[in-house]
Amino acid sequence: MHPTPPWTDPAGLLTLPGGATVRGRRVAAPAAPADFALLLARGPEPAWPVRRIRWPDFWLPLDRADALDALREARRRAYAGQRVEVACYGGVGRTGTALAALAVLDGLDPGPAVAWVRAHYHPRAVETPWQRRWLRGVH
């Protein structure tokens, strides 16, 4: 098996608290290749493997169990050395919430995870109060 090549573009890269790197982006933005995409909005599918979560803009995933399973899969893949990306329409609210959820899965409490993703990814990540509350159920 060949090792996964490193990311070729640093845009949107975020190193999780435990050390794995993931990329956040807008779903329609041109992007360097990844190994796996977790898509949180409608839009073009990249040429690499994809898993979609039904997650309306400014809201929460429609299927909590599926969303948590997909986030755990993305995290497993990232820690296995794959180039994993998370993308929604604007690349901020849902993407930021998913990245904060990955930080929670890495051991941060939800409040600090929101502050952490805002400091390291985007200052408006996790846009709504209900997205912040949703993170309390991530485990």
Rank of each mutant, 00 (worst) to 15 (best):
A78K: 06
R25S: 15
G96A: 00
R94F: 07
L71N: 08
Y79C: 02
P61Q: 03
A31W: 04
L99G: 09
L71S: 09
E127G: 07
A34L: 15
T15A: 13
A98L: 09
A87M: 04
R77V: 11
A67P: 11
A103Q: 01
R133Y: 00
L105H: 02
L71D: 01
L99S: 03
G111E: 13
W134P: 04
A11T: 15
G111L: 01
L102I: 09
A28M: 02
A87R: 05
V50Q: 14
A87C: 14
D106I: 08
R51C: 10
G24F: 06
Y121D: 02
D35L: 03
G18W: 07
V84C: 00
F36Y: 15
L38P: 14
R133P: 03
A119S: 13
P49Q: 03
I53G: 04
T21N: 06
D35S: 14
A125D: 03
H139G: 15
G93D: 08
P46K: 01
R136L: 00
A29G: 07
P129A: 15
A100K: 01
R136Y: 07
A34R: 10
L39V: 12
V27M: 05
T128G: 09
Y121R: 08
R94C: 10
R72N: 06
A31Q: 11
T8G: 13
E85K: 00
T4Q: 12
E85S: 12
A32Y: 01
G107T: 08
V50M: 00
P33F: 06
G12P: 13
R42V: 06
W134I: 01
F58A: 12
A100D: 02
V117T: 14
R94S: 07
D9C: 13
A80W: 02
G81A: 05
L71V: 05
A41Q: 02
R136E: 11
T8R: 13
G24Q: 06
G91D: 03
G90Q: 11
T97A: 14
V84K: 01
E73A: 14
D69K: 08
R72K: 12
R133S: 10
P10V: 10
P49V: 09
A34D: 08
V50R: 11
A125Y: 06
D66G: 12
D63K: 08
P56E: 01
A29L: 04
A119G: 06
H139Y: 00
W55D: 05
R132G: 11
A70H: 09
D9E: 14
R23V: 04
P129V: 04
I53L: 04
G90Y: 07
L38C: 07
D63G: 09
G43D: 11
D66P: 01
T15Q: 13
A32T: 15
A100L: 02
R72E: 12
V22D: 04
V50W: 02
P6Q: 06
L105Q: 03
L16C: 10
P129S: 01
V138H: 00
L60F: 00
G91P: 11
R133H: 05
A100T: 07
R64E: 15
P33H: 10
A98G: 13
A31G: 13
P33E: 05
D9H: 12
I53A: 11
D9W: 02
W48P: 02
P61M: 01
T15E: 13
R136K: 11
A32R: 06
R118F: 05
A70L: 05
L13R: 15
V27G: 03
D106K: 01
Y121K: 06
R42S: 14
F36Q: 03
A115G: 14
L99W: 05
A113T: 06
R26H: 12
P17N: 06
